[in-house]
Design a protein around this nucleic acid. Sequence first.
DNA 1: ACAATAGTGTCTGTTAGACACTATGCC
DNA 2: GGCATAGTGTCTAACAGACACTATTGT
Lengths: 223, 223
Amino acid sequence: MKPILTVDVVLLTLLEGQLQAALFQRAADPFAAAWALPGGFIHEEDASVADAAARVLADKTGIVSPYLEELCTFSGPCRDPRGWSLTVAYFALVAPEVLLSAPASSLRLVPAGPPRLRGLPFDHRDIIEAAVARVRSKSAYSSLPVHLCNPTFSIPELHAVYEAVLGVPLDRANFRRKLEDLNLLEEVPDETRGAGRHRPARLYRQRKEFMHALSVRGRGIGG
Amino acid sequence: MKPILTVDVVLLTLLEGQLQAALFQRAADPFAAAWALPGGFIHEEDASVADAAARVLADKTGIVSPYLEELCTFSGPCRDPRGWSLTVAYFALVAPEVLLSAPASSLRLVPAGPPRLRGLPFDHRDIIEAAVARVRSKSAYSSLPVHLCNPTFSIPELHAVYEAVLGVPLDRANFRRKLEDLNLLEEVPDETRGAGRHRPARLYRQRKEFMHALSVRGRGIGG
DNA sequence: ACAATAGTGTCTGTTAGACACTATGCC
DNA sequence: GGCATAGTGTCTAACAGACACTATTGT
């Protein structure tokens, strides 16, 4: 038996205080013209499924090498009208600026948290919800949310990202201290970012050694 | 492109103080007669890949409904001599008694931790190592190792399992307290297990509500 | 009674969390 | 100078870890 085999990518960003997923209009049947997750078939020249996911994303958005992680597979005889199918789901995290400057005119952002999405083809709603659940749970004990920020960012910005992703308020002071303990960030010399008539914040970037790794040291960042 | 699509299962147990993986002798090419992970193709009647993994395991060992979790996929043009292939890897955890009483005569147990295994076909070594890494890291903050125990077990037995999986000594007293806080276990009334000329230990079982869930409450069980 | 492990009590250093405080840039 | 937010100091309660103690069984 040869099932239909695809990759799908949940491209997430944080906009207006909530996680949003990028949807694209399908070109071909089934569900032609419907808004759905970017996805596609494996190509002979892909070195792996992860490679295929990155290629699909680059083709549709121009985004290259975002944070990309395998989520899990979704499979069964009924999820695709063409027959037994399996998709390997990935999720990607990018700063909102990356998406807003992307050339894709046929891109739509939809809130990915509750309330639950409606009208998506296949089991794309389940996939998005699994991605959001994964991002949330991992964020409680890792530096994953950094990938939702620009290359340089201030501590208050990162603080707001964590609060939005986790959905709980975090003490500013303790959050700072935790970050310092983890030693994930390095200061960008002499750079600040201000917004309004008040003291501007210093800018930081993620240390290279943690670029695609997760810091599970300590007991997480929830404080 | 239609890659070769399979499932593979890393069946793990704890024997002689270390994690061991079950290998089976392959019936067909490629690598016929080689010792490898139990695996196979998806069948039309499987409801999902997880279902296929459970079926494969039941066919080869008779073991039904063990703890079974998707690990990740392994894919690429070179891992199978027949061409571009993808396997969805699962891992299963069982008590050693389950394996020793299994009807499989063509089953072999090999130590899964370091030193690294040699001579396995495909990328089965990578798959086993990924499974072991996953089990170890999850054990630090969950009740996963319970599935390596018999249906009823004593606290000292579970304590030994945690120590073996994590590879570090854990204080007996603090381990007990942690378990009590998590409230994962319930006492089996009037049951004890003794081994030697000393006080026997009370027996416990996992509460039903946690049977296939993970408790991530608190800060893990490492103490 | 003794050996050996099961199970409990208690102390201490560390850490998460709360909150008050000071610093600084922009208007 | 005042406002608004950046950034720091400090107190407290909770918890992890260490370790000494008591309890209970088989021999």
